[in-house]
Amino acid sequence: MASNNDDIELVRRALEGTRADRAGLVRRIQPGIHAEIACLLMRMAPVRGRNPRQELEDLVQEAFLKLFDRDRRPLAGWDPARGCTLDSYVRLIARNRALDVLRSRRRTPWQNDGPETEEIEHTGESLPDPEDIVLARETLATLDSQLHELLAPREYSLFVSLYVEELPPVDVAAALGMSAAAVYQWSSRFRRNVLPRLLAALDEPARSQ
């Protein structure tokens, strides 16, 4: 694991240096970005006619293009003094970019939708999995599905990075190209507008059983 100081130097050289410097940074952060996107795709229903590995590689490239986008501003926005590691920061950017791209490609990409999910669930039921583990995974799939229905890609990124990963809001703002004030405003709006609907949506299947 590289130290923050190593990472600062690596980013500085990638921003100012040669292609070789850029390659050094790509090698350093590529596994984290790859894993982030693979995790995201694992939660989605596979799309027929699309090679998942190719989709993953496309999204990884998209993430790097985003990081080095517009005078490399997204990458230059990382400041370790705020508390976010380089890995967390670039994974946040990668996740947000992937969500944008995937949302534009698919109508309902989440595992809880569509016939593929039924196939997956059927496979799961036929195996001797402990009930609680299956239940937890299914519940998480439901939760993700509900969140994606209620939240735009950027809002989903905000939800995960602020609430699940508890990243510093200033870092989240920098990674998503927002002001810190806008991040706090989103959090307030989420509590006021989205949270009641999310709770109601999650509660609905429980009441029906």
Binding site: Y163, E166, P169, V183, Y184, L199
Partner: peptide
């Protein structure tokens, strides 16, 4: 499929720091 047991009340006040760019955002209870 059983979702997690969740309290119905979602009207809890925003925590300190909410709305002002000073502290961390506290996840909704």
């Amino acid at each position: 499929m059983q979702p997690p047991k969740l309290p119905a009340d979602s009207s809890a006040p925003a925590p300190a720091g909410e709305g002002t760019p000073l502290g961390a955002v506290v996840p909704p209870a």
